[in-house]
Each structure stands twice: as C-alpha cells, then as structure tokens.
Design a protein around this nucleic acid. Structure first.
Lengths: 113, 113
DNA sequence: CGATATGTTCGATGGCCATCGAATAATAAA
DNA sequence: TTTATTATTCGATGGCCATCGAACATATCG
C-alpha cells in the first residue's frame, strides 16, 4: 500500500471521536463502555467480538446512543471512515449495515512490518 | 495504550510529509528514493536497515536534503513526531541524533490485535 | 394520510495546522 | 574574532476540518 493511502487512513483515525467510532465497529461494542456503562452492539442478537467481516446492523443508531455528537456530525464521520476505505456501509430501509474493510485492517497490521 | 494516545500517533502520521519523515527515520533511508534517486541515510557509515533502536545522526540535514520544505517546517515536523512519542531527538553540537521510539512502534503493531 | 424515526445535506463558524520567511541562537571553521 | 552552517522560534497566512442546527429526504407505523 502506498504512503498516501496510509496517511489517509491515519488522518481518518486521527480524530479521537472517529477513532472511537471505528473501534466501536471493529470491536462490535460501545467504545465508551468502561466510562459509561458498556452498552453493547447487538449484531443480529449475538454478542460477538472482533471478526472484522461481521456486518453490524444499526451501527449509526448505536453510535448515536454512545456518543454525544449531533447526528449530522456522526454522519460526517461515517463518511470519512468510508472515504478512507476503513469501513463500508449500506442502507436498507431504516437499517444501516456496516462492516470493517478487511483490506484496510490488513494494511494497518502490515504497517511497519 | 489509551485511545487518546493512539489518536495522537495517528495525527502525527496523518500528514503525508510527516509520515514520509518518520518512515525515512524508521527505514534509515530516503523515503523519496524510488522517485528521486535514493540518497541514503548513513548511520555511522553503515548502510543499515530497519532496527528501530539504531540512532540516526544528522537526521535533520538528511531530511532537508530529501524534501522540498523549509527548514522551519521540517523542524516543526520533528517536534510533532517527538510530541507524539514516535521519535526522540537530541542535539550534540552540530549533530542531530535521532531514533525511533520502540514503545511507539510496538503500540502501532499492537493496534487491532 | 399524518406522525414519528432515521439519515443526509447545507451553510456557518471557530479553531487548528502546514507552510513560509525573517530573526535569532548556537556551534564550528577560518 | 569573523564567517558560515545549522537548527529554533516567531508571526503571519491560507486552508482544512470538527461541529452544530436547520432543512430536507426517506421509510415505518397507526
């Protein structure tokens, strides 16, 4: 992966709020859990953890519940994470499906190897 | 490592120029090598590669030679990399010693583990 | 249909930041 | 000591960006 792509990824994760959102999706649980009670993502009713390929439903709503940011700001952050290639999202009716991009995860893991 | 620390690291690496500088130091060779002829860092006369603990001398000068940025800007970028804990630098007379911080490298590698 | 819930888009705003050149400091060489 | 080299600091500037609220769009429910 090219340097400019890496700087894009790092720029996307350089915002503390956006990093939190990304990790919420990545871990499939509320990143502010330790401080605020640990509301968890429900992935199709399960309580799964860490398989990056898993599709998260209602990601947007859950992030809204966990973070004190306006909806428009959160929408913006989702878009930035998509633009950096970190996640892919898709709407179906009122459901917002979302998953982490495996390639990006691999790229991050391969950085400094 | 805490999320806020990670966002600091990622912020430092989110600038394409700064990422290039960091990788120059990390790899101990000129990051713009492919495009511009590959002037190399001389680490005490050797032609070493990738041991993060190695101290690089005259890092500042070499970066100045490799990049088209003013010295003040490069000085600023070195400072930002230090503030993020990615490198440590030290002046001794006219020599500028510099090395990558192992802990930071480990933290980056452990991200998403 | 009307009401409610859920996301998106837009314009504004305030703040941060990459970059520069000039001035300064510190050191080495002549 | 004078000069040249090298790095830091400072102030200015232009641009990007995180955030908000309002308006709009879309979909579900009653």
């Amino acid at each position: 992966m090219e340097q400019s792509n890496y700087s894009k990824i790092f720029k996307a994760l350089s915002s503390e709020q956006r990093l939190k959102i990304f990790l919420m999706i990545y871990k499939q649980c509320c990143a502010s859990g330790e401080q605020q009670g640990g509301a968890e993502f429900k992935a199709g009713g399960e309580k799964a953890c860490c398989p990056a390929t898993k599709v998260i439903e209602k990601a947007f709503s859950h992030v809204c519940d966990c973070m004190k940011l306006s909806r428009s700001t959160i929408s913006h952050h989702f878009k930035e994470l998509q633009n950096a290639g970190l996640i892919t999202c898709e709407r179906d009716g009122r459901t917002f499906r979302c998953k982490v991009n495996d390639q990006a995860v691999k790229a991050i893991r391969d950085f400094l190897k």
